[in-house]
């Protein structure tokens, strides 16, 4: 049956599209501007022809990776990648274990622990910065990338509630069936629940990766040597005349996240499909 279009419906659709386009433009325009600015030939924001660069070139990107005397972007990039990947692996592992334990096992103090972690999670992480700094000096972990990985990974399980919610949706009847067949708790977790949890694992991995990838405060606090800087700290240390390099650095930092997203989105969808309980 063909849809009937009347004036009210057309107007409604038009207004919806206009609003959506306007919102999309507001979010997209700064990104577009930054991408174009990173290709500015002059490298100075003040030589723009109006709002956009007058001439374009890839010189800023070339400089970003070749001129490393003062600003070693490749090194910062690798540092960031190492921290983010390490935090992602360790953080995901800890978060999934925490969430699974809280979802599947009943033990004394389970409820109080859940309440405490929920309350602690409400405090902004930077509140503990002074203590973190003092602890890190005592452990000799200032100027160590491993110190950052430890902090990020150990803080990750605090946000286990989403993952617990997911595990709660997996029917316990599957666990019970496996138990009857003689499976141990470890086997139930690794052979049954983990394969069903791909979507939440992917989600956890993505969030565990993006937080350290873009964090500024903690690396700024704990990394004093320029060669250990992450991209966020390094870009902030650029001289005020290095705008194009800043823009190029900011654009390039988005590349791994985009790649990661496109790689994992397939698993996410497959996981959702595979995770469904079939009759």
């Amino acid at each position: 049956m063909r849809k009937k279009w009347n004036a009210g419906k057309i107007l409604d659709t038009a207004i919806t599209y206009v609003i959506l386009l306007a919102v999309a433009f507001v979010f997209f325009f700064p990104c577009l501007w930054l991408i174009l600015a990173s290709f500015s030939k002059s490298g100075s924001i003040y030589s723009f022809d109006g709002f956009f660069p007058a001439q374009y070139s890839t010189a800023s990107f070339v400089k970003l990776f070749t001129d490393t005397t003062m600003y070693n972007y490749p090194k910062w990039f690798m540092n960031t990648l190492l921290i983010a990947a390490g935090s992602c692996a360790l953080g995901t592992f800890l978060t999934i274990l925490t969430a699974y334990t809280m979802s599947r096992f009943s033990f004394r103090m389970r409820k109080p622990m859940m309440k405490t972690t929920m309350v602690l999670g409400m405090f902004p992480s930077f509140m503990g910065m002074t203590v973190v700094y003092l602890l890190m000096t005592q452990f000799g972990l200032i100027n160590h990338l491993g110190g950052l990985i430890l902090i990020y990974a150990s803080g990750a399980p605090m946000g286990y509630l989403t993952q617990k919610g997911f595990f709660d949706t997996i029917p316990r009847s599957i666990d019970e069936a496996a138990k009857i067949d003689g499976a141990t708790n470890f086997q139930i977790f690794t052979k049954i629940n983990l394969p069903l949890s791909k979507p939440i694992i992917v989600y956890t991995a993505l969030t565990s990766f993006t937080w350290p990838w873009s964090d500024f405060i903690l690396p700024k606090l704990l990394l004093k040597e320029k060669n250990l800087y992450t991209v966020a700290v390094g870009l902030m240390s650029l001289d005020e005349t290095e705008f194009a390099r800043f823009a190029a650095g900011s654009v390039f930092i988005a590349v791994p996240i985009v790649i990661l997203y496109f790689c994992l989105v397939k698993n996410m969808v497959n996981g959702i499909a595979e995770g469904a309980v079939k009759g």
Binding site: K224, E225, S237
Partner: peptide, 17 residues
């Protein structure tokens, strides 16, 4: 020293950094 030229000696110095 490979540090930011605007360092914070008052805070980092006592810890040996």
């Amino acid at each position: 020293a490979n540090m930011d030229q605007y360092l914070d000696l008052a805070n980092d110095g006592p810890y040996g950094y």
